[in-house]
């Protein structure tokens, strides 16, 4: 990878994330092929597709939880390489929310939210705590600040996980099926939190099969299959006039199961 294309930086400046011809292999298995994706600041993307199509792999490449082998990924102008420096820089900009919350069980909710700002950014305890309390209040869970993760419901844990990621003041948030491990009655509280975040202008890439959410907040819905982006469109077009047979089949299955 080179840094020759400064000519592109004019367009790259307004793009928060740019993936160009990204290829990713697990051993000999190609998990991503020819991924081109550009996400503007403030844009909300919903990523969907059948199991194994590479949705998780794609967003995990963006914060380098997975390495990619070909192409380029830029986050806020930083070219994501394999060196610790660019990985650090990118992870500071990008928050991630996981399907299984992954809260740290041995820390209170408040400590979960203070840990990374203090240890990764070197922010002082007082400021970290103030930020954590502020964000816990915004996800409406401040009264649970001193509890441990195991004492919370799944929906509450996921909202804490969102607050924890936001405490790093990221400019992009990645969500990997944030509601699919939740009991149905808890899905809404998490989606409401995500909608609120979207309304505040956060740049978001959400892997989710919550099509109501996609209709409500997505600027673009992207459909993946077998490691490639098959089709992308604004939600009104995506849901009403899907172009590809695979998309139609997928939408049929998804809407039937919901």
């Amino acid at each position: 990878m080179t840094r020759h294309d400064t000519a592109m930086s004019g367009t790259a400046a307004e793009a928060m994330i740019v993936m160009a011809e990204v290829e990713k292999w697990y051993g000999s298995f190609q998990a991503l092929s020819g991924i081109n994706l550009s996400v503007r600041r403030g844009e909300k993307i919903v990523l969907c597709g059948p199991s194994g199509s590479g949705k998780s792999t794609l967003i995990r490449c963006i914060n380098h939880l997975e390495a990619y082998q070909k192409g380029e990924i830029r986050v806020g102008g930083t070219l994501l390489g394999d060196d610790g420096r660019t990985i650090d820089a990118v992870r500071r900009e990008v928050g991630m929310v996981f399907q299984h919350f992954n809260l740290f069980p041995h820390m209170s909710v408040l400590r979960n939210c203070m840990l990374a700002p203090m240890r990764a950014l070197g922010i002082g305890r007082k400021e970290a705590e103030a930020t954590a309390r502020d964000l816990l209040a915004r996800v409406k869970i401040i009264e649970q600040a001193d509890k441990y993760p195991a004492q919370l419901s799944g929906g509450q844990q996921q909202r804490v996980a969102i607050a924890r990621a936001l405490c790093m003041r990221p400019s992009v948030m990645l969500f990997d099926e944030p509601t699919s491990a939740l009991d149905p009655e808890m899905v809404k509280e998490v989606l409401d939190t995500m909608v609120a975040l979207a309304e505040e202008g956060m740049t978001m890439i959400c892997v989710t099969h919550e099509m109501g959410f996609a209709r409500q907040v997505a600027d673009r819905v992207i459909f993946m299959a077998e490691g490639s982006i098959v089709e992308e469109a604004p939600p009104d077009i995506f849901f009403t006039q899907p172009r590809h047979a695979r998309t139609r089949k997928f939408l049929g299955e998804i809407l039937r199961s919901h």
Partner: peptide, 20 residues
């Protein structure tokens, strides 16, 4: 997932081990 959550939050491997 615990380790990935730590890494995604910008903590280095050694800190992830020690703190998480």
């Amino acid at each position: 997932g615990q380790i990935e959550a730590g890494l995604a939050l910008g903590l280095h491997r050694a800190l992830v081990f020690r703190l998480i």
